[in-house]
């Protein structure tokens, strides 16, 4: 960022990205219901928010759906990645192509196509729209991200690692759990986190697959913006903003620290090697 013009450009860009959110947050403390007229400081929208039965229920629903879907997607996706990794070229490319579909397909098409499928289930089996449909739908768009996170770890793994474990007395099962799983654990974990965030954030697919009995937070927010506008939404945005920012900052700090430590360690190793 050498020149002044590029600095100015970046400031304007980030202002464009953040100002709307900041305005939203500021008005969460506004006394009146107005979204433009400042009439004084208050916290009662926050208090209202935590008394709002509907929002709290949908928040809980979101947590349940997101956790269940991302845990199941992590198991399914990790198994899939292990299978894909040991497949031949043809099987691999077919399955990876199929995995690409939910990623690139417009969300609305994924939503309506699953809706049609679930309607079919409802019509022919003892099946209801609700948690089950939401979780099944969420797993479907979560799994690819788990696969994309685990596969590179498998590719980067030393192919002799499993053999080394067997050589040291592990049966194939032990070798898998003691050598392979710990090795790809970072990928599994980041896949899980990515699945979790996509699930929490999802609106479109949930909108089409939730039915009328169970509402996730996004669905609730959408219907709130549609009918009555309340500063409670602003308060909710402020809380979400603070939580997300905190998580990302902590993650960034930890990563930077690890980066520096790794650099220091490899420098030390280099020095030692030279000293010999």
């Amino acid at each position: 960022m050498k020149s002044i013009s590029s600095k100015v450009y970046m400031y304007i860009l980030y202002a464009f990205l953040y100002l709307p959110i900041l305005v939203l947050i500021v008005f969460s403390f506004n006394q009146s219901k107005s979204r433009a007229n400042w009439t004084g400081f208050t916290l009662h929208w926050y208090a209202d928010l935590f008394r709002d039965e509907r929002i709290l229920t949908s928040l809980l629903n979101t947590v349940i759906v997101a956790l269940a879907a991302s845990v199941l997607a992590t198991v399914l996706g990790t198994m899939a990645a292990l299978g894909i990794h040991s497949m031949g070229k043809f099987g691999k490319s077919v399955l990876m192509g199929a995995t690409y579909i939910p990623v690139i397909n417009p969300e609305i098409i994924m939503g309506i196509s699953l809706m049609i499928l679930f309607r079919f289930f409802v019509a022919h089996f003892n099946f209801q729209f609700g948690f089950a449909t939401l979780i099944l739908a969420h797993i479907s768009f979560d799994v690819p991200y788990v696969i994309y996170n685990v596969l590179p770890k498998l590719r980067a793994m030393n192919p002799n690692l499993v053999e080394a474990a067997q050589d040291l007395g592990c049966n194939p099962r032990q070798a898998f759990f003691k050598a392979v799983i710990p090795e790809i654990m970072p990928g599994i974990f980041s896949g899980f986190l990515m699945a979790l965030t996509y699930s929490v954030d999802d609106f479109v697919v949930s909108y089409f697959t939730s039915g009328t009995t169970v509402e996730t937070l996004s669905v609730t927010i959408e219907s709130m913006t549609r009918v009555k506008v309340s500063p409670k939404i602003n308060a909710l945005s402020a809380i979400i903003f603070v939580v997300i920012t905190a998580i990302l900052i902590i993650k960034n700090v930890l990563e930077n620290r690890r980066l520096r430590r790794d650099m220091a360690l490899s420098r030390a190793a280099l020095k030692e090697a030279r000293g010999k």
Binding site: N158, N160, A164, L168
Partner: peptide, 15 residues
Amino acid sequence: HKRQVNTVFQKYALF
């Protein structure tokens, strides 16, 4: 894993 031999692998394959 049942053989009484052990191996030092080419790229070490340490965990």
